[in-house]
Design a protein around this nucleic acid. Sequence first.
DNA 1: GTTCCTTTGAAGGGA
DNA 2: TCCCTTCAAAGGAAC
Length: 552
Amino acid sequence: MPQLNGGGGDDLGANDEMISFKDEGEQEEKISENVSAERDLDDVKSSLVKKNPKQNKQTKKIYQAERRPQTRPDSESYEKTRDYFGEALRRQQDGGFFKSPHYPGYQFLMFPDLTNPYLSNGSLSPSARTYLQMKWPLLDVPGSAGIKDSRSPTPGHLSNKVPVVQHAHHVHPLTPLITYSNEHFSPGTPPSHLSPEILDPKTGIPRTPHPSELSPYYPLSPGAVGSIAHPLSWFMQQQGQPMYSIPPGGFRHPYPTLAMNASMSSLVSSRFSPHMVTPPPHSLHQTGIPHPAIVSPAIKQEPSGDNISPSMKSPVPSKKEEDKKPHIKKPLNAFMLYMKEMRAKVVAECTLKESAAINQILGRRWHSLSREEQAKYYELARKERQLHSQLYPGWSARDNYGKRKKRKRENKPDSKPEGKSKKQCVQYLPSEKMCDSPASSHGSMLDSPATPSAALASPAAPAPTHSEQAQPLSLTTKPEGRMHHHFSPSIAIPIGTLGSQSSTPILTRPIPFTSLHHSMLSPPSPFHQAALHSHHSLFQSQPLSLVTKPTE
DNA sequence: GTTCCTTTGAAGGGA
DNA sequence: TCCCTTCAAAGGAAC
């Protein structure tokens, strides 16, 4: 688990983190995101087809070397989340325009007083109002009118998989932790007066949310508890995508004992008594409720035990048992959680559909996140792992090995699939000049040798080795079949001052002419320029050079 | 219909 | 300890 350096001294340096998204003005943020998305789009479009495993690996290594997020100790993290919420509440109560934090839901981990969102007189407490407003921006919560965030795009409109209008900014990072397929829920219907107004994704007409979109996690009792949709119900409805596939037949209350009433801190760490963590067979808890991480082979449509190599199988269970054995998915890591949350937003901004491209953008944005922001996801991931381990004590990631379709391994430099011609590519590295992240992750690594990579490293992830950092980038190949013909001519953009630490040659990034964006050939916009200037000299302009991509 | 792509991080095994 | 491999999500593209 990554540990952020304790509050005061963020001596991890690196004020080169991209913070511009956080506390800037709303307009500025929007501009920033649009610009970044635009650049990301161009970037990705131009680079996606070019990349190959080795290049990716190099890029990855550089990314990894560049910065390792730090998380604070839990207590401090929680304190900060409290502060987040307090600040949000203050803003709201001050009558100011409530601007949700970048990850507005996160602070709800420590949401105070959720166990009793109502005041004694029956009205919602301010905190509960704030929560509800964050949860359901369209919900008219008394006393909080006008705090709807109209800024963020509504991926729900744009994503064909988002059944509920939900601002990306209001998607709690923990949402994927407990999001399940809507189709399998039959939760209680919240009272109409508290039902968020939801736009039908197809008609755009406001409608009462389907019960499945609300609070399926709350084992609402027939009585009082059911009188209000539980504040944490929104955990369930992120993008209509379950984090874990649901076995046939669905389930009613995932994490049944996960009665998320008070704080999410106890959600995963203390809500599970030992007796309930033992996964009953067939994906069902003892309550008969399957865990979302359990995927029925039928649903998963993954190779059955027959396709699993014997080495992958545990010697103990028989083949039949193996077939019956549910597929327990790995818990999502921090980046995966981030991806799930941000994908729709990126898709909306970039009008990109290709996940590979989206993921590239997300990867960059991930690196552009501040440590605090990343720490949130690391914390969530940690909790998820903790929950997962408690639910499935005997589970090992190794159990899933071989349950996927076998992937070809082409990463090895010398391994080339027979009969497949390869095309040499120009060395590719994502150019931070084109990236949305002024706080170049690459730059921070390359320009800040004093920053110990270990200090920046995620506790769970080993710091990049010296060999990794110094590993020279080389020309790599990619199967020609995936190459796009018009990508041949390209522009090489030198990547800053890379040579200072290694013998890495000037890195160039092929950019198809057809994808060239004006921003690539013209000075950065004032905003971007300022952002660039405020961070690194890495971004000092260097002349663009035209190169011709070698072709075979 | 299946596999690949692409990202980061976690985990496990081998050297 | 280090390195490598696999898998987790996602969905269009390629095969």
